[in-house]
Nucleic acid binder design. Structure first.
Length: 450
DNA sequence: CTGATGATGATTAGTGGC
DNA sequence: GCCACTAATCATCATCAG
């Protein structure tokens, strides 16, 4: 299969037609896949606004501002340069030859977003262009520590809105460094109450008993989808048992390294263990036993992939006064329903949720929670690829539009702990981001015609 | 066939000495 | 600036037991 054919196949997989793919390649030449997507989306929306009633000034302005002007100029600029994927390990910090470079997207330190409850930092004020404010509101999430250039690309697609990077360790006892791009107001936010504990001992007081004085951790690292093996925790136990008290520095170093990597806690003398699923549910802001009923492996996988509810709820809290009668939600990559749990805990009624989630285990958990706690309408869809523009128009018509489009697209090909397929935003799963983009634009477009 | 288990580095950013 | 070092990280695969 030629390179061109592969690109066409990828674009078709993303939900574009073969004609559109061919035209984009003709227009742009031999450029990266994401630039082709950009080009197709630009021409789609430009056509859309041409074929529509031109008295709709807001939409017309919006399209030409966002795509007709800036983006085309930028495409010409950037299509000249070759992008340097990680893979050439010999290249290191090689400066770009033509002088151009991706605009840097540094992660803030401390990673506290625009503001956080209880932090007396200067609260950021931001003014979004009118065309980027809702309706609909949207909320997009992914891992903060993605490969270079990924967040710059995501931000570019999502209307050049600056990501809000937040480490959930500032809100709860476990780290979770994530980037959020949204068009929600950022004033007058309010946290879920009660505020979750921020330290390991506050969250799990019984671990004090066996916690050695030389383990200085007060918070846990990011909860992931896998757990340390029993063999590993046994090795740690043996190393400590055959050591002095306190252990030699080299032993301490080995043990602490493994404890940090595996998020291990002290459950006995010289005995460490990974967290239980129930403890993860608690740290992440879910109700007790939210994922109960799945196998242990599935529970860890589902929990490792979800939102930290308090963090997301803090951002979504501004919706409460805006929608006293409830919201219609389009939920992409729903997972176990972190966004919905956040809305529920905020006391925001969900009139209807259209949920797209492909894993059966997640669907079962979410459906179970919904049936027990909600009275609104739930519509389940398996795959973002099958949520076509036509179906979106139909849903928008049926529900009178969506108030919130929320979702975090797959991080598989972005996450640092992936040894095998960390190939960036164009990776097999992470490329589904472009469906988030496509679907969001389809919703905006359909709602503009209401 | 399905689910549980155990083993498997690299890419980033930051720090501190020189 | 350069280099050694510390540190964190929504994962994947082969294999095994049932």
């Amino acid at each position: 299969m030629s390179e061109k054919d592969e690109k066409i196949k990828s674009l078709v997989d993303m939900g574009f037609s073969e004609d559109e793919a061919n035209m984009a390649i003709t227009r742009c030449g031999d450029v990266d896949l994401w630039e082709l997507v950009d080009s197709i989306s630009a021409s789609r929306i430009t056509e859309d606004s041409h074929s529509r009633n031109l008295s709709d000034h807001q939409i017309t302005d919006r399209c030409f501002d966002s795509f007709g002007g800036r983006k085309k100029a930028r495409l010409m600029e950037e299509s000249k340069k070759k992008r340097n994927r990680y893979g050439g390990r010999a290249q290191g910090n090689q400066p770009s030859l033509d002088g151009s470079h991706d605009e840097p997207m540094p992660l803030p330190n401390p990673m506290v977003g625009f503001n956080l409850p209880g932090y007396l930092q200067p609260s950021v004020t931001r003014i979004l262009p009118k065309q980027d404010t809702g309706p609909p509101f949207f909320y997009y999430e992914n891992v903060a520590q993605a490969p270079k250039g990924v967040w710059a690309t995501i931000s570019r697609f999502l209307y050049d809105i600056q990501p809000e990077f937040v480490d959930s360790k500032h809100l709860c006892a476990t780290a979770r460094k994530r980037g959020y791009i949204h068009n929600l107001p950022i004033e007058n936010r309010s946290p879920l109450l009660p505020m979750p504990p921020k330290t390991i001992f506050e969250a799990f007081p019984h671990y004090k008993k066996w916690w050695p004085s030389w383990d200085l951790r007060t918070q846990l690292n990011c909860l992931r989808t896998n757990v340390a093996s029993a063999k590993l925790t046994e090795r740690i136990g043996r190393a400590l048992a055959s050591s002095d008290s306190p252990p030699a520095r080299s032993v301490q170093k080995y043990v602490m390294n493994e404890c940090r990597k595996g998020n291990l806690v002290w459950i006995g003398k010289n005995k460490v263990a990974p967290l239980e699923p129930e403890e993860m549910e608690y740290l992440l802001g879910f109700p007790k036993d939210h994922t109960r009923g799945l196998g242990i492996t599935e529970r860890y996988k589902s929990l490792g992939n979800t939102f930290q509810v308090d963090t997301v709820a803090y951002h979504l809290s501004v919706l409460k006064v805006m929608f006293p009668n409830g919201v219609n939600v389009l939920s992409l990559f729903t997972g176990i329903g972190g966004g919905e749990v956040a809305l529920h805990r905020l006391g925001i009624h969900m009139k209807a949720v259209v949920s797209v989630e492909i894993r059966k285990a997640n669907k079962r958990i979410f459906r179970g929670w919904w049936d027990q706690t909600q009275t609104g309408t739930l519509i389940e869809i398996d795959d973002v690829k099958s949520l076509t523009d036509d179906r979106i128009v139909s849903f928008v018509s049926r529900f009178g539009g969506f108030d919130l489009v929320i979702g975090g697209s797959p991080c598989n090909n972005l996450a640092g702990c992936n040894r095998y397929n960390r190939d960036g935003l164009e990776g097999e799963q992470s490329a589904l981001f472009y469906h988030y983009f496509r679907i969001l634009n389809a919703v905006k477009s359909a709602m503009a015609r209401m």
